[in-house]
Computed example of a mutant assay.
Amino acid sequence: MPTEAKSITNEWQAFWLAVGFLTRIPMLVRIDYSQKLMNQCSVYLPLVGLLLGALYAGLFTLLSLAWNPLVCVLLVLCFHLFITGAFHEDGLADSVDALGGGYTVEKRLEIMKDSRIGTYGTVALVMALGLKAALLLDAQSIWLALLVAPAISRLTPLLLMAWLPYVTDPDKSKSKPVAEGFSRKRLLVSVVFTVVIVLVFSPWLPGLWLVAITAILTVALVWGWYLQQQLGGYTGDTLGASVVFCELALLLGM
């Protein structure tokens, strides 16, 4: 196979691998799985977010034909938790449990690996989901907020991966391949893609570019600084938490 064609095939497979990694959507192509391919897939996080956003916006529009906005938003959130397997919410709960209940780095990492959820994690989940529903209901355009927020917010973990060290047991972490193989060159591709999304939808959401930049950088800097202080770097769970935090910040701005 020519080099260019092989490269296109690898990127296509990397995209579908990212879809399979972040969601329960069946992969529609054959994947020649390898560590290198897993390393490549992180660049497609915002694109997967846009795919999810399109599903959420479409579902909300369909549901709104029969029910009021509150019911529709809650049903869309239920669908979100199902289609993603509560992937990022799980990271939020584990992160808050660990950072709230651990007094040393070792203890925090130990708590983070525990599959059980504690009081801190439960409270964080309830508040995050409740606030997300309230902010969506308060948005100028609910379907548009559902569409763009998942894509824009998934740039934040890539910034953390680019500038912080990875600090968990690599042999027991499902994010190991992504974390070890991420490069700043691929981050640039994700940044460009996110900028395009913001520019495309700015006419319908005035000020979206300012809200997006503020939310992404604020969460990346504040959460990244806190993780550096508490853990010395990031883990897979803290990356998931960063997506939730950035989505909430975006919705606050919208």
Rank of each mutant, 00 (worst) to 15 (best):
K174M: 13
Q40K: 11
A212H: 05
V29M: 00
V178P: 00
L137E: 13
G224V: 03
G118K: 00
L137D: 12
P69G: 10
A86D: 08
V195G: 05
R184M: 12
G53R: 06
E4G: 00
S173R: 12
G207L: 14
L55R: 00
L45Q: 04
P170W: 09
P157I: 07
G121V: 06
L99T: 11
A14N: 01
T214V: 06
V126A: 14
A98Y: 13
L22A: 05
L22D: 01
L239W: 03
K172N: 14
L81Q: 14
E4M: 05
H80M: 11
S242L: 01
I216G: 03
N68Y: 15
D237P: 06
V71I: 15
D169N: 15
G102Y: 15
L45A: 13
T104I: 15
I31C: 00
K6N: 09
L62G: 11
L17N: 01
L251K: 01
L55I: 15
L51Q: 04
S7K: 08
A212E: 02
Y234V: 01
A162K: 06
F60S: 14
M38N: 02
M112E: 11
P26M: 02
F245I: 01
L75S: 06
L63F: 11
L50C: 02
I31F: 00
Q228D: 09
V43Y: 00
G102K: 14
V167P: 09
L37H: 00
T168E: 15
L125T: 07
G232W: 09
L92I: 11
A220K: 03
M38C: 06
A241D: 02
Q35F: 03
A212K: 03
P26D: 01
S175H: 12
Q13R: 10
L160W: 05
M27P: 00
M254P: 02
L47W: 04
V200T: 10
L75A: 07
L125P: 07
L144G: 07
Q228L: 10
V48C: 04
Y103Q: 14
L208P: 13
L37P: 01
V189T: 10
L99N: 11
F79M: 07
A179D: 02
Q140P: 14
L62S: 14
S202P: 06
N39D: 11
L129F: 12
P157D: 06
V195P: 03
L59H: 03
A212S: 10
R186W: 07
W143T: 15
T218D: 02
A5R: 02
W225A: 12
M127C: 06
L250T: 06
G121I: 04
N39G: 12
L217I: 09
L188Y: 11
L227C: 09
V148A: 09
L199G: 10
G118Y: 01
K172Y: 10
L109H: 09
L81H: 10
A220D: 06
I111H: 11
A220Q: 03
A57Y: 12
P157S: 05
M27Q: 05
W143S: 15
M254W: 14
P206G: 13
T235E: 06
F182E: 03
V200W: 15
S115E: 06
M127F: 09
L239T: 04
S190I: 08
A179K: 08
K174Y: 05
D169Y: 12
V43D: 00
L251R: 00
L221H: 05
L159D: 03
T218V: 05
S202A: 15
W225Y: 11
V96P: 08
V105E: 15
L188W: 14
L210E: 08
S190Y: 07
K185A: 12
G232N: 13
Y120A: 09
D32E: 14
